[in-house]
């Protein structure tokens, strides 16, 4: 089982490396100095955070399509508060509280009320997006403090920014917590078999709510970083991030039926997703190819994955059959395979 997890993330990672190499072969400028690769990584932070949050909800076998609006709302609130001269800490805390509340509401609807997650979060998505229109309207939040904006371009390790390094540490910590601690493994257990998890004493409902809260918090953090990176928030900010996050999770080897995959995979998938538009520039293709390539890559990966799973299931069945006939033959006294 463990080997399988590893293999699933490795596919995504190898795909990313192959992608960089192919672009490097087509246009050698891309690989020179490593700055462009760093730019790919730096540009991915918002996607990474949203995708990691989404990974939690997908691992427990549900989904959260309200993250895009959640991100946008937090970005708008934090941006407006900073614009009005409130202290940064207050603004951040306020943003995080919004994320937690959204997560709690989603968790309540899905885990306690047992409403299909896609539908419930679609509803909250609409409500949050509407609230964002109420806040921002046709105006834009543009006067974000310069110091906050500059923070996003400050680099620590070579060309890698502070935000990227923090994100990497955060993802690493979450991954360790999920794979090494008992509570961390609850998520995968619940996603694999919610009823069974309940029977062996894992609090399935509480775990599901927690997954949604974590998803909400990470979306809120992503919203704050979005505000800093973009420097402006419109009423459409964050629109469509939910679908890209789902795609990133799928690319990273997380099964949408839950219980299979890892947080690191989602992060790698997010880097692939956000790099595609950057890589197009080096391949001298117009940005119109962005969605086409994303769609094709996504479809190829999921279809191949499904076909391979089907094949391995058939092979396993065949192997079992062979083994059974072999033992039957031995009982009769003389069969060799």
């Amino acid at each position: 089982m463990k080997k399988l997890f590893k293999a699933r993330e490795m596919t995504a990672f190898l795909f990313l490396v192959a992608l960089f190499l192919v672009v490097g072969v087509i246009n050698p400028d891309f690989l020179r100095g490593g700055e462009n690769i760093a730019a790919c990584f730096n540009g991915a932070i918002v996607y990474i955070l949203v995708a990691v949050g989404m990974a939690f909800t997908i691992l427990i076998g549900e989904i959260d399509v309200s993250v895009g609006s959640n991100l946008g709302l937090v970005a708008a609130v934090v941006g407006t508060m900073m614009q009005n001269g409130e202290s940064w800490i207050k603004a951040f805390l306020f943003g995080l509280i919004i994320g937690i509340i959204v997560g709690l509401i989603n968790g309540w609807g899905v885990a306690v009320m047992k409403i299909p997650s896609l539908i419930f979060t679609l509803g909250t998505n609409g409500v949050l997006r509407g609230m964002m229109f109420l806040m921002v309207g046709t105006k834009q939040v543009t006067d974000v403090p310069v110091a906050f904006k500059n923070l996003s371009s400050k680099s620590v390790v070579g060309p890698l920014t502070v935000f990227f390094c923090c994100t990497v540490v955060l993802v690493a910590v979450i991954q360790l917590l999920m794979s090494r601690t008992k509570r961390g493994r609850y998520f995968i257990a619940v996603g694999d078999n919610a009823g069974g998890a309940d029977l062996v004493g894992i609090p399935a409902t509480r775990t599901k709510v927690l997954a949604y809260v974590i998803c909400g918090i990470l979306a809120a953090v992503a919203g704050i970083l979005f505000c800093s990176r973009a420097g402006q928030v419109t009423s459409l900010s964050g629109n469509g991030y939910e679908m890209k996050a789902v795609a990133a999770c799928v690319l990273g080897g997380i099964s949408l039926s839950g219980g299979l995959g890892s947080v690191v995979g989602a992060a790698v998938g997010a880097i692939i997703m956000s790099s595609i538009s950057y890589l197009l520039v080096f391949m001298k293709l117009s940005s119109y190819y962005d969605n086409v390539i994303t769609g094709i890559v996504l479809l190829i990966i999921v279809v191949l994955d499904a076909l391979m799973q089907h094949r391995s299931a058939v092979n396993n069945r065949h192997a079992r059959l062979v083994a059974r006939t072999a033992t039957a033959g031995v009982e009769k006294g003389g069969g060799e395979q």
């Binding site: 989904i63 789902v246 795609a247 039926s257 769609g295 479809l299 999921v302």
Partner: peptide, 15 residues
């Protein structure tokens, strides 16, 4: 191919 409808149509919407 037995892929989940959600994923396929998500990919389809991008494509």
């Amino acid at each position: 191919c037995r892929v989940q409808a959600m994923v396929v149509t998500l990919g389809g919407s991008f494509l």
